[in-house]
Design a protein around this nucleic acid. Sequence first.
DNA 1: CGGTATCCTCGGAGATACTG
DNA 2: CAGTATCTCCGAGGATACCG
Lengths: 113, 113
Amino acid sequence: MKDLVSRCPIEEVMRVLSGRWPTLLIYYLKEGTKRFSELQRDNPTVSHRMLSLELRKLEQAGIVERTVFDGYPLRVEYDLTRAGLDLVPLIDALGDWWTETDDTRALVPDEKA
Amino acid sequence: MKDLVSRCPIEEVMRVLSGRWPTLLIYYLKEGTKRFSELQRDNPTVSHRMLSLELRKLEQAGIVERTVFDGYPLRVEYDLTRAGLDLVPLIDALGDWWTETDDTRALVPDEKA
DNA sequence: CGGTATCCTCGGAGATACTG
DNA sequence: CAGTATCTCCGAGGATACCG
């Protein structure tokens, strides 16, 4: 997923949403403002480093907003932006589609058998 | 993206759609039936192997249907299934969202400067 | 607490070659 | 033509440690 092979906007969104974390983070952020450590607790298996990188990616994409509160210990809050909120129903629609088409996949012969 | 970390359907769809090729292949397949070699021509940078693997993944997910015609040389055709066709507008919506929120990203300071 | 840098590993994906 | 197998390599991502 390094370079784009088309000028298609779809390919560009997928550059941001691809992977395990982006949609999950959006999913948890729609519950409201979250701190770094809260998101870490929401996703126990995400590494410190990846959480940081993914949040930055979402920030660059205009999906997430980052607010730093000076003081000690540090305090940083993450929110969905307006664009991020607009994205939520689209992602949900994908989830619904997946659930609704579950029977289609059930027809696939089990290769593990 | 190996194992799921939640039972969330969104995470499951993203397992299928993540990466450079799935959405691109769906994009080209919505033009109609395509043969393996046609898809290869549509995406000149996809490797033989990856195209094969990705098509199988989409097939397992119930998005793409594979039809083999006996004879020589071999001939295999790929189509979107009903579920695949239903998925198209959802993916398009993501593309539209991306285009519409382009100005948000334009506000991000250029780190390459 | 949140972020970054460094190191290291493991598997995703390209190239190639072979079969039906 | 379409698909699979083998080999290889590069980089995504984990673990760890240190800074503001």
